[in-house]
């Protein structure tokens, strides 16, 4: 990559795998799990976080020398809250049904630990361009997990992807259902999101033994 130095590129790619915000840093789980029953909602959530974290990291990084450290949390919260209000209003204007499904979870991006975590750990100590890359990288790492979980839950739970019936029609018995396949309605319930993430962690850590805890 000509545009990015090697160090900068690792800011983008590390969070996707070995330093993933959800499975390794344990950040941003709160809002990640509840909305993954459908792939569409997961994608929208991932894009929203990408926007908020990318812009937010730049703003905080620009202000890093003038924020007094005592009130930095409140300053950070105000920056995020302003960005999240933008996201919320855009969603309400262009995807009203979806914003109903996501309900309070759009608002909860404010307290998504991934955002505060990256502000504290990175943007407060780095220049805007690097902070932007870090924000995009981490939000993408978060998005990847969200989309994987959303993919499996929607596919196994209701047999659809983005609303398309990829496995055939369960009522008219076409496709896989003709062979006696049944949807696992359990996948749509919230506890399964936790178990799916647990399994992703299991797979990831068996492939890379350096990540195993004690």
């Amino acid at each position: 990559m000509g545009l990015l130095s090697k160090k900068d590129a690792s800011l983008l790619t590390d969070p996707l795998t070995d330093n993933n915000p959800i499975t390794i840093q344990v950040l941003g789980i709160c809002s990640a799990l509840a909305i993954t029953a459908e792939l569409k909602a997961s994608i929208v959530m991932a894009v929203s976080v990408l926007f908020v974290l990318g812009i937010g990291n730049v703003v905080i990084s620009l202000m890093r020398n003038i924020i007094p450290s005592k009130i930095r949390i409140i300053v950070q919260l105000v920056v995020v809250a302003a960005l999240v209000i933008i996201v919320d209003l855009v969603l309400k204007a262009f995807a009203y049904e979806l914003s109903k499904t996501l309900s309070v979870f759009v608002g909860l991006i404010i307290t998504n630990c991934i955002i505060m975590g990256r502000f504290e750990a990175f943007a407060l100590a780095n220049k805007p361009w690097r902070s932007f890359l870090d924000g995009i990288g981490n939000a993408a790492g978060y998005g990847v997990i969200l989309i994987i979980v959303g993919f499996f839950r929607e596919l196994l739970g209701s047999g659809t992807l983005l609303g398309f019936k990829v496995l055939g029609d369960p009522i008219e018995k076409t496709g896989l259902y003709a062979l006696g396949y049944e949807n696992n309605g359990f996948m749509l319930l919230s506890p399964m999101a936790l178990i799916v993430v647990g399994l992703i962690i299991w797979v990831q850590r068996s492939r890379n033994s350096a990540l195993i805890e004690d």
């Binding site: 499975t23 344990v26 319930l189 919230s190 506890p191 399964m192 999101a193 936790l194 178990i195 993430v197 647990g198 399994l199 962690i201 299991w202 850590r205 068996s206 033994s209 195993i212 805890e213 004690d214």
Partner: peptide, 23 residues
């Protein structure tokens, strides 16, 4: 616990099982 599940992984799965219980 299997080595790769230790720590975070098993906690997720236990929480999932507890959530099923709470349902």
């Amino acid at each position: 616990v299997p080595a790769a599940l230790r720590g975070l992984g098993i906690t997720f799965i236990i929480t999932g099982l507890m959530a099923i219980g709470f349902m």
